[in-house]
């Protein structure tokens, strides 16, 4: 079994075996575009294969790949050309969660000393759990400005999740818990 990024011919073979001809053509056109733009291709292939395994219609698969490609472009534009691939992929997820490119730029500017992959994964998770996107973005930006470590973000996610499960409002939980990182007053 191979669990690493696969080369373009292997990706194409996988897609050809999983998709109908029309969807395959649409998807490979988009993966070719991503490759030409030096954007990550594996996530796009992954979405197409996930759709095939979940027996999604071809049109839906093509739309998903298209939307992901747009998000990857937006993430790289917001994070900068030197952003690492995992940061771009996580940034695309954040944009797909509804966070604005401007907020993503602010987080990049606030967190220049550490990789942003984990903070952006946590940001998307907070939003998925009900924290309003503006609140979640400000919490992560504040943590990044405080030079938080990956373990800090992991703890933030854990405690916010616990608070929500215990009945706290997601926004209040995020605003309160980020204090443990920033050491300052709660976000308002």
């Amino acid at each position: 079994m191979i669990f690493a990024a696969v080369a373009a011919p292997a990706q194409e073979a996988r897609l050809r075996s999983a998709l109908d001809a029309e969807t395959f053509t649409k998807v490979t056109k988009m993966t070719d575009s991503a490759r030409a733009e030096s954007l990550p291709v594996d996530p796009l292939v992954g979405v197409a294969l996930e759709g095939a395994q979940r027996r999604a219609p071809g049109a839906r698969i093509a739309t998903a790949v298209h939307d992901y490609l747009v998000a990857l472009r937006g993430a790289r534009a917001a994070l900068g050309a030197d952003a690492a691939t995992p940061e771009i992929v996580s940034g695309a997820g954040v944009l797909l969660s509804g966070v604005s490119p401007e907020d993503l730029r602010r987080i990049r500017a606030a967190g220049t000393r550490r990789p942003l992959t984990v903070p952006l994964v946590v940001l998307a998770d907070l939003i998925a759990r009900g924290v309003p996107k503006d609140t979640a973005a400000r919490a992560i930006e504040a943590a990044a400005r405080a030079n938080a470590r990956d373990d800090d973000y992991s703890a933030l996610r854990r405690y916010v999740e616990q608070d929500i499960l215990a009945g706290a409002s997601p926004a209040a939980a995020a605003m309160l818990r980020v204090r443990s990182i920033t050491g300052g007053p709660p976000l308002e």
Binding site: V47, E50, Y68, L96, S97, A124, A128, R129
Partner: peptide, 12 residues
């Protein structure tokens, strides 16, 4: 953590 994308109706 939950993935933000839910392309096919369900998160990962």
């Amino acid at each position: 953590p939950l993935s933000p994308e839910q392309w096919f109706g369900q998160r990962n």
